[in-house]
Amino acid sequence: MKPKPDLSVTIAGVKFPNPVLVASGTFGYGEEYGALIDLSKLGGIVCKSVTLLPREGNPPPRTVETPSGMLNAIGLTNVGVDRFIQEKLPFLQKQKTRIIVNVAGRTIEEYVEVVKKLNPCKGIDMLEINISCPNVKEGGLAFGARCESAQTCIKQVKEISGFPIIAKLSPNVTDIVEIAQAVEGAGTDAISLINTLVGMAIDVEKRRPVLGNITGGLSGPAIKPVALAMVWKVANAVKVPVIGLGGIMNTQDALEFFLAGASMIQIGTANFVDPQTSVNIVNGLNRYLKEKGIERITDLVGKLETK
């Protein structure tokens, strides 16, 4: 009998049982989906963005469906880092899976403050630094859209972080490779991409934008080709591991991202469509590797042939 394929992946010294994470903002703080899926089957949970102070978020409507995708403009609604530590982290600490806390801020100081407050906490494996949210006026994309600010933000966070960090990048930039190289230079341990693409929907009858925030972030299968191209470009330009996300709905999609160079993947919008998606993909990868006689998932990473 062939041995079971090895799905484990190690990034910045953190060993994940499999390469399938659930993406920030689509999975709450884990407990919301606890009734529906076996969280221990996940490679890890990236929880909803945490900011220094609680945020109410943007005026509704906050979501609208678009062809093969959706726009959202939630606006980083969250309870703030203090309540996160008190109320949300205890549930996550009990889960038999890796926990990645997504951090956002209006200023670099805020990112640093949040990370300092998280530093003493147990049960956190990594941080994902959100320099790519398109739906807030200050912070977010404001840092991720330019090399200098992205670099400064990641550098200062890395200097004080007690955890390995992932820089989460936006596709809403002139050249994502430059930004990726900038954050690599700033010392990030990994890079995740892509966050949502800025988009818009209009109600013709009312002559008004559908979203309360006017614009939002596009996600879902509609953006997968964009995400795949960006993952491929970035993975070929940096040495740190790349975590790919953007419209992954099934095992086939996931395999495309590994071939393009992603070491891990995140499942986002697909959680809304079918909460089992991430677990189904873990099982699907296992089957695929077994069928093809591939020993390790890492053997697939970046194996796209272009010549």
Partner: peptide, 10 residues
């Protein structure tokens, strides 16, 4: 979107 309280879209 999610229907389970996770996304804060509704």
């Amino acid at each position: 979107a999610c229907g389970v309280g996770a996304c804060w879209g509704c």
